Amino acid sequence: MLQPLIPEQVDRSVAAATTPATRLILALAAVHAARVAQIATLMLDDVDLGNRRLTIAGASARWTTSPCSCCWTGLSTGAAGGRTPRTSTC
């Protein structure tokens, strides 16, 4: 049974994501419900930037926002150590 995280759990997770890699893992888990093992096995062939598609565990999904927006919006606020979040597109 799925249970949503309470705001304090979300805040702790975002605060703990202090590197680009951990922010990406958190974004993939939050947006695509990807599990750690699935994220760890991602290959470049699983990412289709031209068609804005990502394949995780055999399931393909289209991005509705740019990958940079997904990784930076909300996740870098407070977790960037006071730095200004990156807002440009890749």
Rank of each mutant, 00 (worst) to 15 (best):
R83Y: 01
P4K: 06
I39A: 01
A16M: 06
R35H: 08
A16Y: 03
A61Q: 08
V47I: 15
P20C: 01
Q3M: 14
R83D: 05
C68R: 13
I56Y: 00
C70Y: 05
W63M: 00
V14D: 05
W63Y: 10
D11V: 04
L75C: 11
T89M: 13
C70K: 08
A61H: 09
Q9K: 04
L49K: 03
I6F: 08
M1N: 13
A61M: 14
T18M: 05
L54I: 12
I56T: 02
G74I: 04
A34I: 01
L5Y: 01
P7E: 04
A17V: 04
S60V: 15
A34Q: 06
L24S: 14
A29W: 09
A33F: 11
D45Y: 11
L44H: 12
C90K: 13
H32R: 04
T22S: 12
I39S: 06
T77H: 13
G58W: 04
V10M: 00
C90M: 09
T65Y: 10
P20K: 05
I25W: 13
C70L: 09
H32P: 07
Q9R: 04
S60T: 15
R12K: 01
I6W: 07
C71M: 10
C70T: 14
Q3L: 13
R12E: 06
P20G: 04
L26I: 00
T18R: 13
L42A: 00
W63L: 15
A17C: 03
T84E: 11
W72A: 10
R35M: 00
G74N: 04
R52F: 06
L2C: 09
T41V: 14
E8V: 03
S66F: 07
W63K: 01
C71D: 03
G78A: 05
G58H: 09
R35L: 02
L49M: 05
Q38T: 06
C71W: 08
M1R: 15
R62Q: 06
L5N: 00
S13P: 02
V31D: 12
M1T: 13
G74Y: 00
A80I: 07
R35A: 04
M1V: 07
L54T: 01
R83V: 05
M43C: 15
S66E: 08
Q38R: 03
I39M: 09
Q38G: 06
C70F: 07
T41W: 07
A33Y: 02
G78V: 03
G74D: 07
R53A: 03
D48R: 12
L5G: 02
V10Y: 03
S13L: 12
T84L: 13
L24W: 12
I39N: 03
